[in-house]
Amino acid sequence: PDPCYDEHGAARRCIPDFVNAAFGKEVRASSTCGARGPNRYCARSEESARTCHTCDASDPRRAHPASYLTDLNNPHNLTCWQSETGVQRAPNVSLTLSLGKKFEVTYVSVQFCSRRPDSMAISKSMDYGKTWVPFQFYSTQCRKVYGRPSRAPITKQNEQEAVCTDAHADARPLSGGLVAFSTLDGRPSAHDFDSSPVLQDWVTATDIRVTFSRLRAPGEPDEGEGEDEDAQHFYAVSDLQVGGRCKCNGHASRCVRERESGGLVCDCKHNTAGAECDRCKPFHYDRPWQRATAREAHECVACNCNLHARRCRFNMELYKLSGRKSGGVCLNCRHNTAGRHCHYCKEGYYRDMSKPISHRKACKACDCHPVGAAGKTCNQTTGQCPCKDGVTGITCNRCAKGYQQSRSPIAPCIKIP
């Protein structure tokens, strides 16, 4: 059964499965160790003493590529991406992940192999990387590093803004640890997400970027200080996860690869279309497009054009006047029909009542006589043309009883003397 329809075939809201949208996707790292030749790094865990190793991108056994961030995360055999060393003196290091389409992100998590950085930011793009907005900041010095207050209260007014926290900075574990950002956590409208366009927008992202800004806070004690210091300063992450759902606005239960572009798109139902089912299918504009909710699927409805038009447009005024039932206006009515729904015959034609209005020959030409008729428009129902004095017949093509044809086209029938 299709989750987008109930057992009676009525449309109902449907949503794609919850997934790790990052899994298997490419991550662009601004810095990766060993990319410019082998380099030495030293790590220290809680239990063991400091040990040094070599990172070499050309040797698979010693490489720590960015692809390790989104591969299968096996806790018994951790594969870690690792930045170049000396990051304490270097500019920011960033990890950029393209999700390929809009997702509604529930959380972003970063599982560290190295110690957690003192300051990092998570940002998102909603336009495939053209522009970026902050999603969340972590720092022990929020004001100094990011110019934001620490742990600022989240209210209805600012619930679509990034906040800064030092919640990640617990001393233990020294190395490793998970930093997870829950996009709706603490946001007042989260309990009524369905009717909060602000939060629906807030959780929407096409790309995620994690930027490590500072490994250690100034003055923080540094093990092995002085001795090969740079080799200890690097970022290492085993897993970057983006938990969420493919954004389909409640009109699809899955996303599929498009055949032509290979990109991910929603498998739209409810007569919707677009990568995110964010518009109605052509000719289905009788109601305005709306996101589906738990209570109402807001299915797109075909315009009623009685089979005489292939295109229509939506008119909000008419929709409101109809009591929010129908707002479609048919365009280019064919078969000599006219009107909003192509529901009557255009001028010069009349309705053949023996055929339904949807029949392609439902409208017949008036065929008013060029001389006998006073005009070209006939009665819409009967087909009777307006006849000149003394003329008769549906098309005004005969002289009435007691009249005879004259030679004048102005008065074609004159009374018999």
């Binding site: 002289c399 086209p409 102005i410």
Partner: peptide, 24 residues
């Protein structure tokens, strides 16, 4: 009784040339 159809050929179009239907 069937009344005869108006015979276009019987009309004198001299003064009404612009009204005369185009013959297909």
């Amino acid at each position: 009784e069937v009344l005869p159809t108006l015979d276009m050929a019987l009309f004198d179009w001299t003064d009404y040339e612009d009204m005369k239907p185009v013959d297909n």
